[in-house]
């Protein structure tokens, strides 16, 4: 390769890297279209037993007011929602309730917070606050980053 071609290639690569980084920033920051939505109030009952939450997945929309009712069916269990810092402890005959506004969108794992046996650390469910914008952005980021990497390393 001649020196000129080499330097052209370097400039070219720099351009690719710079545009990829800009596009990735855009994927993080670009406002995503939002649908008009009137928030609702939900009361969601979760039954906890070793080592399962039933239902294991909950779905609400951003802005909804969520009342979680935790009922333990076999022994003492807790429910801690990542990111919302909600912590409930229930026992058969003593259910527990918490109300909060689901103001952050995304997927939040909830997990048992009172040791209940071997699989306790893996007693996990998930609260989906839709629309799951972090996931959409992560996918965009992966696409832009992946295509950028392809272009960057392509010969």
């Amino acid at each position: 390769m001649t020196k000129a071609a080499l330097s052209y290639r370097h400039t070219h690569r720099f351009g690719i890297a710079a545009s990829a980084v800009l596009l990735m920033l855009a994927a993080i920051l670009v406002p995503l279209p939002a649908q008009a939505y009137t928030p609702r109030a939900h009361t969601l009952q979760i039954n906890a037993r070793a080592f399962a939450f039933e239902p294991g997945s909950l779905s609400v929309r951003r802005g909804d007011t969520v009342t979680l009712v935790l009922e333990a069916t076999d022994t003492v269990h807790g429910l801690y929602v990542d990111g919302y810092d909600v912590n409930l402890v229930a026992e058969p005959g003593k259910s527990a309730t918490a109300t909060f506004v689901a103001d952050k969108e995304g997927k939040f794992k909830f997990r048992c917070s009172v040791a209940c046996g071997a699989l306790h650390p893996f007693m996990i469910g998930e609260l989906n606050v839709e629309p799951n914008l972090p996931f959409v952005r992560a996918l965009l980021l992966t696409l832009v980053g992946g295509i950028g990497a392809l272009a960057f390393f392509w010969k």
Partner: peptide, 19 residues
Amino acid sequence: YARDCAACHGERGDGQGPA
């Protein structure tokens, strides 16, 4: 009642407790 009975007889006394 809450400690010893509600698990079976239910918090509302309806006999529908989880245990």
